[in-house]
Design a protein around this nucleic acid. Sequence first.
DNA 1: GTGGTCTAGACCACG
DNA 2: GTGGTCTAGACCACA
Lengths: 129, 129, 129, 129
Amino acid sequence: MTAHGVGIRVDHTAHIPPYEQIRAQIAELIAVGRLVRGDRLPSVRQLAADLGLANNTVVRAYRELESAGLVRSRRGSGTEVVAPASAFDAGARLAEQADAYAAAVRRLGASNEEALAAVRHALAVSEGG
Amino acid sequence: MTAHGVGIRVDHTAHIPPYEQIRAQIAELIAVGRLVRGDRLPSVRQLAADLGLANNTVVRAYRELESAGLVRSRRGSGTEVVAPASAFDAGARLAEQADAYAAAVRRLGASNEEALAAVRHALAVSEGG
Amino acid sequence: MTAHGVGIRVDHTAHIPPYEQIRAQIAELIAVGRLVRGDRLPSVRQLAADLGLANNTVVRAYRELESAGLVRSRRGSGTEVVAPASAFDAGARLAEQADAYAAAVRRLGASNEEALAAVRHALAVSEGG
Amino acid sequence: MTAHGVGIRVDHTAHIPPYEQIRAQIAELIAVGRLVRGDRLPSVRQLAADLGLANNTVVRAYRELESAGLVRSRRGSGTEVVAPASAFDAGARLAEQADAYAAAVRRLGASNEEALAAVRHALAVSEGG
DNA sequence: GTGGTCTAGACCACG
DNA sequence: GTGGTCTAGACCACA
């Protein structure tokens, strides 16, 4: 499997730089096991073209993934995943997201019931996506 | 009530610019009703000092809030909230957060049950905070 | 005659500081002869109250008029006009305004005919004011 | 056509802040159709250097034009006009200037005849410029 | 004391 | 090269 087609997106309205959005999404794909050791990432040019970005932007994302030890770029053969998914704890990552949501709930002053209802609804909707 | 002490924070590791973090947090405090019409924001210099930022950074955050019609700054007499909390739809904001959480759940490949359990736990923990 | 009631205004949306707006308007009233040698300006407190400004703002306007030799403040007796209208050349001031208008016409790319028609209309309308 | 060389000026004696002078002049150039959709503004650094200002001052002018929907800035590729001239009503703008002139005429106590003669003269002189 | 603007220069993200 | 943000400190206008 390659990362091509796994749905990497960049949001130009966010204040987070595109290179970082790419990096984080690929890191997560690896964390979750959707990209495993040996999988090849899309080529820099390919991904840049798909996202409407300059090559350098993708190059930088890949470079940071490499220096984090998640992927390895070899000349002539592209970039491939070297870290096992087990390097991450998916449960911990889910807990992280849940914590962020709980914090938002508190800021907004919503009750636990409202918070859970909102999640149930969002999950139901996202099921189709 | 004044905004002094309501706990505005800036995260220097985030890729979001400080002025935008400040703007968003104050907007949310107003949205949620923790800051209401007539409340005064901390002075530019005060907040800048508290957050370890240059005055200009806070000035910019306040300016953007002003051009969004949320606050009003007057020379010599500070900056105060002019928008009622009702200018916002708290339900919509909660739904937004829930959607973001659901999206993360999907990326992480967790089940709905796991997702809800994680939220219940996070809410329980955050109750004390 | 006093300046009280001659219609001094400040525009808070303009980028020109209030003290300067006041100074310019009084200078013009003198230039045109609507305020003549011996006339008293409204008191600082009076004018400040009328305009919704701090006393200091009016004080500054008067100070600048004084250092321009147009008025004189004496303790106990307020501020009065000392310059004769003849210190100014009303014709030159009209020409200045006309030049400014002509420049705007050029910037806007309007024809001389359009420009004159617009002035005729504006003059007709202002006749009633 | 580019804005380079269209003659943006800042008047340091005016009480209007430079960023606002720049903003207003560019807005007017667009309004009048001298800058049209797709035209590129001079680069921030170029214009700042031409005008003897700090980069930030120009950045702010451009930012305000962008949030008004008149131009669009993109990292790496400059700032370009996105609003059509038709977004403005040139007639209204001429009328505005004429009104300002008429107001000055009234303040100066000049007659309509004098006022029109002054405009005719100013227009004749400005014809060459 | 308050907010507003500007400078000079730094570093970052992007093409 | 482009624009975007921040700093540190200055001066101004205003209450």
